[in-house]
């Protein structure tokens, strides 16, 4: 190897053209290079540029500086409503999903018989297209005849009219978002299967209780998977769109309580065709998601346990 590398380099340097392997490699990734230029770099720069214009499809864009951002922050109450709604959704749903999925995976990992049956049942809801899932839950949440309220009444509660009540519409969105939780459960379960059994056995022989093994071995070794689910969860929760649009429409009924940030962008871009304004709002989402991901990865250095050999 030590001899092979210099030879290769001298060869490359001697010949102005790339060697056979490099040319083939570039050819193989060429479609992706085109994608990165045409469908990533150009549009990201485009959105950034548009955000300083008043582009509205019908007319050529005019440069208006920071007007869109000023309007968003100081003159458009809908912006702050959407921000609050989306933050509420994320703050409640991300930890809730993580905890519930982890608990279910831990139970499934206790060596139960028929695990494959449960796995299928938990995964099935993830197959349902979000449009269909949302529509089904609109019946599920029905005040009088929906199974959710029938069950709540059976245990003596007086349940709300979920989708017509500004207080309960967002929790309803969060609950219906829990239906495809099986994906995260399976991801956690796969992570649990990777934990070396001999480690747990050794701790067991040393007299560690089940709880000690969970807190001392299982959870630390699972932190990379928790990080993965956390990052994905945060990125997705800020972009929830389909159920919010179907339940609340573009105005976020009732009383803007389901006006999620993505619905706001959709409304501005494709209903009002205020492309410039929507682009500015998209840039804010981009910045928020980038910042949050960065913070999570920074914090990961403290709480995520990495075993040697990173691939």
């Amino acid at each position: 190897m030590a001899i092979a590398i210099p030879t290769r380099q001298t060869q490359t340097r001697a010949l102005p053209r790339l060697n056979r392997e490099a040319r083939a490699g570039l050819l193989f990734v060429l479609p992706w290079l085109i994608f990165l230029v045409v469908f990533t770099t150009y549009p990201v720069l485009g959105t950034f540029t548009l955000s300083f214009t008043d582009y509205s499809v019908i007319q050529a864009p005019n440069w208006i500086g920071l007007d869109n951002y000023q309007r968003m922050f100081f003159q458009d109450p809908s912006f702050w409503t959407a921000v609050k709604n989306s933050v509420f959704y994320a703050v409640v749903s991300v930890p809730l999903r993580l905890v519930l999925a982890l608990l279910l995976a831990l139970v499934l990992n206790l060596g139960v018989r028929g695990i494959s049956v449960y796995r299928v049942i938990f995964y099935l809801p993830a197959l349902v297209p979000p449009v269909a899932a949302t529509i089904v839950f609109m019946l599920m949440f029905n005040l009088d005849t929906g199974p959710i309220n029938v069950a709540l009444r059976a245990i003596g509660l007086s349940p709300p009219d979920w989708l017509r009540d500004p207080v309960w519409a967002k929790p309803a969105l969060i609950i219906l978002g829990l239906w495809p939780l099986g994906i995260e459960v399976l991801v956690f379960l796969a992570g649990l299967k990777e934990i070396p059994q001999d480690l747990l056995d050794a701790a067991s022989i040393d007299g560690a209780s089940r709880w000690r093994r969970l807190v001392g071995i299982t959870i630390p070794l699972l932190t990379p998977v928790i990080l993965f689910n956390l990052v994905i969860g945060v990125i997705y929760s800020f972009q929830v769109f389909t159920p919010a649009l179907i339940i609340g429409g573009t105005t976020g009924e009732p009383l803007e309580s389901t006006l999620m940030y993505m619905v706001l962008i959709y409304r501005n871009a494709f209903r009002y065709f205020s492309m410039g304004y929507a682009a500015a709002q998209a840039m804010i989402l981009f910045a928020a998601v980038a910042l949050l991901t960065l913070l999570i990865f920074r914090s990961a250095r403290v709480w995520v346990h990495y075993e040697g050999g990173e691939r």
């Binding site: 469908f39 150009y42 485009g46 548009l50 962008i265 682009a279 998209a282």
Partner: peptide, 8 residues
Amino acid sequence: PPIVTFIP
């Protein structure tokens, strides 16, 4: 986020 590239 996909919406960032969607408009252009």
